[in-house]
Design a protein around this nucleic acid. Structure first.
Lengths: 196, 196
DNA sequence: GTTTACCTGTCACATTTGTGACAAAGTTAT
DNA sequence: ATAACTTTGTCACAAATGTGACAGGTAAAC
């Protein structure tokens, strides 16, 4: 099984950067793989992430527990995405997030130290790091704009339009907190839309 | 004047990455400098940014005009920051933003093509690109969290706490739209706080 | 100095969203 | 199959925010 998923991620990475055999063998020797059950945690609040997780199979969410004890979902992670709190991983600072499996998952892990080693030794890996950061930057900017330019209903409609692949994997409560509203409000929005 | 500001940005860049003489001369030969008056635009909505601007002196804002014709400020840019719409610059796609000088400004410009050339030719420049992207990613993530975890009053208090250096350069209206509320709401919040 | 344009504070009212409660439906564990 | 738990939909009321209006203050332009 290991070999199968290693080849899977190799071909995924190659869609972004050209990797020579040195770089590929460095990457393959650096990563490990693990299966998770539903409700298991990739990591919990307070931890420093020693590795970043790449989702080969499964579905996860990232959430934060606020002062009132409410769980606020800030991201869903499906296949071919990285399960991490980027800012805390980059700085190697404790994260305030939990990452929880919503489905049984298969995760490939890259250790932080190996990534840094890859950045200094291999130009293609440094470039891949920049491209990933630029991509996340873009995603986060879109999300800031969604709060500034759109109301809750528009954010909801946009979400279901842009996430047809995962929409039937997320619960109403999780989605509501991701959109920045209460579950009752999302319920209201849904019934309002249904009447149209 | 040119030389003065070129030395200024050289020493700024050196605080992030080690630059050898090849890299420094490449950078210095790539950049140009320009003065702007108050109310002048660095670029306007619909344009593809051929260059990124580094603010040596001055103060600017980035804003978007929505369907109702309202100007929504999404960022303030002061000294030692880049005046750009990153996502559109990265992809070389037209921006929906205006960047306007709120004060007379001195801006150093890096052409997009030169930056890409720098990325491929110089490892230190590629690394600097990654660090900048990682930094912007972190800033944008903080901003998303501010919408999810905080109400308008908390966002306002956090802003004045974290931006003591520019707080007296921004107007109430601009700040309100940056916080995602109407100017009347910010006015209300201010008077509510004043009563405490 | 005067005029003009813009910015700010405040008000009343409308709309949106949050809060707490409850019941029905669905899911999980035993 | 049953019981325990979770999720969802709905309601009434409270709180927050948006909207349109107006007046006074400030700054820029002539």
């Amino acid at each position: 099984m290991e070999q199968e998923f290693k080849e899977y991620i190799d071909s995924y990475l190659k869609t972004f950067v050209d990797l020579n055999s040195d770089e590929l063998s460095f990457i393959n020797s650096s990563l490990s793989i693990r299966k998770y059950n539903k409700k298991e945690f990739l990591f919990e609040s307070g931890m420093v992430q020693k590795e970043v997780g790449f989702v080969c199979k499964g579905f996860l969410r990232r959430y934060y527990i606020n002062e009132k004890g409410n769980k606020i979902t800030t991201g869903f992670i499906n296949e071919n995405n990285y399960a991490t709190d980027y800012p805390s991983f980059i700085r190697q600072k404790p994260s305030k997030y939990f990452i929880e499996c919503l489905e049984p998952s298969v995760i490939i892990k890259f250790p932080y130290n190996k990534i840094q080693e890859g950045y200094t030794k291999f130009k293609a890996i440094e470039m891949y790091g920049r491209l990933i950061a630029e991509w996340v930057l873009t995603v986060q900017t879109d999300r800031v704009e969604s709060f500034l330019f759109e109301n809750a209903e528009e954010r909801y409609l946009k979400f279901i339009d842009q996430n047809k692949d995962i929409i039937n994997r997320v619960s109403l409560s999780h989605l509501a907190s991701y959109l920045g509203i209460e579950r009752q409000s999302l319920s209201r929005i849904r019934s309002k839309i249904a009447k149209k």
